[in-house]
Design a binder for these strands. Structure first.
Lengths: 202, 202
DNA sequence: GTCTATATCGTGATAGAC
DNA sequence: GTCTATCACGATATAGAC
């Protein structure tokens, strides 16, 4: 698990100037910590240390651990756009398109951290699980089901999503080999037919 | 999440007789609590309350929370037998066979609780994740890969497993509808082709 | 804005009375 | 075997000095 990337090429040591992009740095450190250790084990002190600021400052900026968590999870992609992007075009190749999009998305900085933080938190905090449930329901399933021309569109969409969740768990949380180290090129031809089966039909 | 079932039809109230099947009752309560709330949030006090015994008794029996967790997770099925059962027979129908077995297994009392406890704990405790990783590797993947006559047998087995994990997460942890309430009969025809794709070939 | 010191609460574990 | 009382420790959150 990588520690927070430094966006500006400023040295980590030394006193940080007041009110600069400290906020962004804190959010990135929080994201990494929440992703790696889960919500309860994350620790405000550890986040502060990773960001190079004092622990009390976090409360000053965000008020509480809950609110910091929420702020760190701000979703980076527009669900509406994703659904349209994937479901538009030839329905016979929707599987590859989705697999390609997903594997590419996870390589984008910050995205995987957000997903893992959300998953780890949802696993142990019912409140977060409910949040995720509602998000999935409203933002993804409802939209996707409307465009799918198949029977049981919600069930199919959610099964597709369950494969996405399970892949993240097996690959990054459990870390089982050789899956964890498998390349995009190895995964794509095995993953695409599964997605195709759920969203394509037969 | 259901609370621990009472194996013997004894009343829950009133003083529990010394050294009877108290141990089993505690283990069931622990399993339910670990499954529902995860390892760290489980709470010895809560487990003791659910089992109708004193908290100090748990330490007396099991020594520590770790050891109680281990005892509660004792695996109820023989991996070797499962692999043989599923992979034997016509390879063209391995998907349905696995899906049927899995959905049936989860309806068996205690099995789902064990799986959820393990998943929730693995999500936040690296030590448990490592345990699960080794178990999956040694007991499942190695065996299954040896019997599969396909390319990348480990990867295929693990992708199959990732779908199993994801299904458990989506259905029971996130609890998204209509997947969470879907019946065996609804899931089977959608799930079987996925397993078939991973383990069957094409 | 930034940091030190502390309040308050939760936990697992333990000692010892009955 | 069973329970009461307590310890030691970690966490978030906060008050207040600079």
């Amino acid at each position: 698990m990588t520690t927070a990337e430094q966006p500006t090429p400023r040295k980590k040591t030394g006193r940080r100037p007041g009110g600069a992009d400290t906020r962004r740095t804190v959010l990135e450190a929080a994201r990494a910590e929440f992703a790696a250790r889960g919500y309860e084990k994350a620790g405000m002190r550890a986040i502060a240390r990773a960001a190079g600021v004092d622990a009390a400052l976090l409360h000053h900026y965000f008020g509480s651990k809950d609110r910091l968590f929420m702020a760190a999870l701000e979703f980076p992609v527009e669900p509406k756009a994703v659904v349209e992007l994937v479901l538009a075009g030839d329905r016979a190749t929707v599987g590859v398109r989705l697999a390609e999009f997903l594997l590419g998305l996870w390589e984008q900085p910050g995205v995987l951290d957000r997903m893992l933080a959300l998953l780890r938190a949802a696993a142990t905090t019912e409140q977060v699980a409910q949040l995720m449930r509602e998000f999935v329901q409203e933002e993804l399933v409802r939209r996707a089901a409307a465009e799918l021309g198949l029977d049981q569109p919600e069930l199919r969409t959610e099964l597709m999503l369950s494969q996405v969740i399970g892949l993240a768990m097996a690959r990054y949380v459990i870390g089982v080999e050789p899956l964890a180290s498998a390349s995009r090129e190895e995964l794509l031809p095995l993953l695409a037919p599964t997605f195709q089966g759920y969203l394509g039909g037969a």
